[in-house]
Design a protein around this nucleic acid. Sequence first.
DNA 1: CTTACACGCTTTTTT
DNA 2: AGCGTGTAAG
Length: 675
Amino acid sequence: MNEMDREPKSYVLRRAEENGPSKLSLDYAQALNAQQLAAVTAGDGPALVIAGAGSGKTRTLIYRVAYLIDKGIDPSSILLVTFTRKSAQEMLNRTGLLIGSRSERVFGGTFHSVANTLLRQYGRSIGIQPGFTILDRGDSEDLISLLRAQLGLSEKDKRFPRKGTIAEMISKCVNTLQGLDDVVLGEFAHFSEHLEDLDKLWRAYEADKRARQLLDYDDLLVKLRELLSTDEAVRQTVSHRFRYILVDEYQDTNRLQADIIRKLAATHDNVMVVGDDSQSIYAFRGATFRNIMDFPTLFPESRLYKLEENYRSTQPILNVANDVIRGASEKYTKQLFTRKLDGPLPALVQAAGENAQSRFITQKILELREEGVPLDEVAILFRSSFHSFDLEIELSRRDLPFVKRGGFKFIETAHVKDLLAHLRVIENPLDAVSWNRVLLMVEGVGPKKAQDLIASFVKQGRPERTPLDALREVAGRSSRGLKDLAKALDEAGKLAALTPAEQVNEIYGYYLPILKEHYDDYPKRVRDLEHLYTIAERYQTLDTFLADLALEPPDQSVTGVEALDRDDERVVLSTIHSAKGLEWQCVFVIWAVDGRFPSAYSFATEEELEEERRLFYVAVTRAKQHLFLTYPINVYDKTTGSVLSKPSRFLDDVAPSLLETWALVEEGGFHDRWG
DNA sequence: CTTACACGCTTTTTT
DNA sequence: AGCGTGTAAG
């Protein structure tokens, strides 16, 4: 048959009108189920949407934004707060497909990125300059470490907590609005003898950040809340600017964030929050599903909407999920159901060891590919990043392309941080952490000289002299290292003349010899820096480049990026936390063994165990069609000194008939090979 | 003072 | 494996 004989398929190009038509342009009742429709077309005022896993939560949010715009609401007065900025972008793109280019003017981002924007714009009244620097976790740890040395707290008599632990304690205090004594005595009792010193250190940390215009992640939230609390005018302005506020993943917000929302909505109460109390998995950083439970108290007029139809998973998968979550103590009752009644029974697979588990997964993925399941529809999920190490080796051996989500980030690698530190002292010459890093790289400069130099940079009395001027003076009478540094910073520091990419390039030229000197594997690292250059090319100004990098770090190092170029179809390896909101046809949950999942660290308290349970629930509900739960046995665990062999305790709650149990048998009958 | 290296200790999840 | 600390040589 000739193609030309057929009627051409018609494809409607929508007009991108600035002023919407008076009647609604979309058929909402057609596109949504009754529960979704009710939420989407809700009137003004506070609304709580409880959205079960796979119930079209994102779709509902997208249609809600479209609906508001459709009704004639100015898109720029809509604020969409999401968990990652990628998901905000994705939602707004999809909204654009529904409603046209008007959606581009919706303001979307994470709490942190919204805070970043608002603080740069309005922060002056609480002493925050627009050029402030954002400290990522590593940076704040470095600063803490520096201050600890300055305060002489690293004396060896008794074990003092390490920098990461200290940062964790402080962050916990801030995010849960608790005092240091409560947190230390409650969760770090073994360090209680250092309480006074820790308190001193915390105060020094706060003072130093204030003096140098540094804000860590928590500060972004704290300061925004402070701004909205203390500056009546700003609160009015901002609240009027965002007349409609939508918050995704509300179960993973903390009390600070809830408070910010309360204040942002001060003049109108037009807040719609969406979430699922059963999927709250960020308590370790201060999130509390209480926010969802308490929303009706915070906003007494609020109405409740529930989305209960699951569009993602088959009934057999949902059955397992329901049994797992049934044991949870406190929750909004919701009855998830699906119309996909048939599907394979989820499998519970016992493997004789870690490597047997890896080989099973590899083999099964190859089989699934034969059956027509594309590689990018397969995900392997795990509790902790290191759980996939053995599997990664096995996948590489069998030439199966994969990408890993979660765990270490591109931006956290030493060489990337090194290069960025130079740009940061250009952007914020008061940033002592970055100065320290930059100076330590110079030949002949150690911790002592670096500290002396930094101290001399900020000497009182000559405010007109910048740190860079000071460096130049010192460099004049120093050996080559500091001279080269001063020259490089001078060149790269011509903000007006250079783009961020050119600045990266300038510093790169200076840094390359240092990189080669320090790392034997420098060719790999050089490629990372080239990647950084291509990222920088997307930016007009240095401050936005640096802020974005801190707020939304690219999660792939060069290995991942190359895989992306070579082949689109890749298996996804991900921590469960990073798998939030995503779905795949086939999901493997590995290390479903008691002691790893739930992690032995969480055995201590009921709350932590409950969170692990919800995490398990999140993992299971990512699957559309196939679900494999695998657990290795006879694994010696160093931390607990015990042998892991028992399947995850959460599976005890699952009726045996809901799972198919598999035993792996070695070809040729060598059962005990990995025992 | 800086640098290099050796040793013991602890190891989740992330904006 | 990576961090903090201790030691010893330049």
